[in-house]
């Protein structure tokens, strides 16, 4: 059994609890344990960096130090949390003065961070630690007939880890193929969903969501798969707002990749948090039904 420290982040407690549930179910299926950090704090999302860069890195470092204390690498399911954790670790390695300054503050909570651990996004665990072959073997209920748009979003791939593929990745598509579904051609897959702009600059943010929905729909997707709670909420919960603002009529389900994977693995929908959608996921099941009936 492989074990990682798990930083769910604020969104997964409630707003994205279906991501939380399905992440735990699907990792457990492959014998991977996600051990939630004890007493983790908000990592500041993107907003903290608007105010103070060192403080923002301190908040992130506290969670990293909690993981390092356990001697475990850190996994974050939220792309913004992941990006923050990834960056802060990188800065700690590059800039000893910054590390010292922040460690001085971390002493207040008896913590220390040496940047010895690595940071992963949840999707990387499935791509690298489990791998497409094992996923294929685990699939009980191949999602045949389903066309899934792989929405990477922006924060996972940026700014690259020096890998040239970060402008043209394919691991999400491979994951979808392993589930037995068909990945949609989705050229906007790395484009930003607007993130927290939805709270501060509504129309531009809705426009960004519209571009993504239109691209997925145009390319025949039945559902969009996301790997980030901010993306999921923007694409799903603001779909009706997009329709109202731009006179469109989108009705496209948006599920977490772990929910779709869970279905393929034969895990019961309620264990995957399915049913908390604002845009019904029924079309996804309708697509799958004929096979189940046969």
């Amino acid at each position: 059994m492989k074990k990682f420290a798990y930083f769910p982040g604020c969104s997964l407690e409630k707003m994205a609890s279906s991501y939380h549930k399905s992440a735990l179910e699907t990792t457990k299926y492959f014998d991977i344990e996600l051990q939630e950090l004890d007493d983790w704090n908000c990592c500041g999302a993107t907003t903290y960096f608007h105010l103070d860069e060192i403080l923002a890195n301190t908040l992130v470092a506290r969670n990293l130090a909690l993981a390092e204390k356990e001697g475990l690498d850190l996994v974050a399911p939220c792309s913004a949390c992941y990006k923050n954790a990834y960056f802060t670790t990188k800065y700690f390695r590059k800039d000893p003065e910054l590390a010292e300054h922040i460690n001085f503050a971390l002493e207040e909570d008896d913590l220390h961070f040496d940047a010895k651990i690595d940071v992963y996004h949840l999707i990387e665990i499935f791509v690298n630690d489990v791998g497409a072959e094992k996923i294929k073997e685990g699939v009980q209920n191949p999602l045949e007939g389903l066309v899934i748009a792989p929405y990477y979003g922006c924060q996972i791939e940026r700014p690259g880890k020096g890998v040239p593929e970060s402008e043209d990745p394919s691991y999400f598509e491979d994951l979808i193929s392993a589930m037995g579904a068909k990945p949609a051609y989705f050229p906007e897959r790395l484009r930003c969903c607007g993130g927290s702009l939805i709270m501060t600059s509504r129309v531009p943010a809705l426009d960004m969501v519209k571009v993504l929905l239109a691209s997925a729909e145009r390319n025949g997707a039945h559902v969009i798969a996301t790997a980030c709670p901010l993306c999921q909420v923007n694409l799903e919960c603001y779909q009706s707002a997009v329709n109202e603002e731009f006179g469109t009529d989108f009705n496209l389900p948006v599920l977490y990749f772990t929910q779709l994977l869970g279905l393929a693995l034969g895990i019961a929908p309620d264990k995957l948090g399915i049913g908390a959608e604002l845009v019904s996921a029924a079309p996804v099941f309708n697509k799958l039904l004929p096979k189940e009936a046969s």
Binding site: Q155, R158, R191, L197
Partner: peptide
């Protein structure tokens, strides 16, 4: 209005 998507940076 910047959404901090880092696409420009990359």
């Amino acid at each position: 209005f910047c959404a901090s998507c880092y696409h420009c940076t990359v």
